[in-house]
């Protein structure tokens, strides 16, 4: 998996030639004391193919998913379509972009976005006089 940070400018081929159909992955975003955690459902996507881009507080997820059946497949029942997952999320300006980490397992992408040092809560000791 490539985790693209602010300094890197990855314009993937998929960006220029969008897939026939793209889908919004469902996401959860939670905030802990020192980081944000983003989880996205990207069933069928391979970890190595996922592109992530973070810039100015905006996280872009692009998880290419290749077709699993021929175009000519005659479906007896078709309840969902298959295609790339793409989504842009706004996370504010508290993220330490240099230290974002990501992993994908069983079709779920998990990102850890640490908060900038100045934003993390700090315990303040009170000295006795």
């Amino acid at each position: 998996m490539s985790c693209c940070e602010t300094t890197c400018c990855d314009t993937s081929d998929a960006e220029q030639t969008p897939a026939a159909s793209e889908f919004h992955p469902q996401v959860d975003i939670v905030e802990l004391t020192d980081e944000f955690v983003v989880r996205a459902d990207v069933p069928g996507a391979k970890a190595d193919d996922i592109n992530l881009h973070y810039e100015d507080g905006t996280l872009t997820i692009h998880a290419p998913v290749a077709a699993r059946q021929d175009d000519e497949t005659h479906y007896l029942r078709r309840e969902y379509g298959v295609g790339d997952f793409r989504r842009t999320l706004s996370l504010g300006d508290q993220v330490d972009a240099e230290n974002i980490s990501a992993a994908a397992e069983d079709g779920v992408l998990t990102l850890h976005l640490p908060k900038l040092a100045g934003i993390k809560p700090r315990k303040i000791d009170v000295n006795t006089g």
């Binding site: 459902d41 990207v42 069933p43 069928g44 699993r68 059946q69 497949t73 005659h74 479906y75 007896l76 029942r77 078709r78 309840e79 969902y80 069983d106 079709g107 779920v108």
Partner: peptide, 24 residues
């Protein structure tokens, strides 16, 4: 309805697919 499924067939078999992210 969960999970959503796709079903198709070939001469010998029915094929079914479902998206179950995060499941073991």
């Amino acid at each position: 309805v969960f999970p959503a499924i796709n079903v198709w067939e070939d001469d010998k078999s029915l094929l079914l697919e479902a998206e179950l992210p995060g499941m073991k």
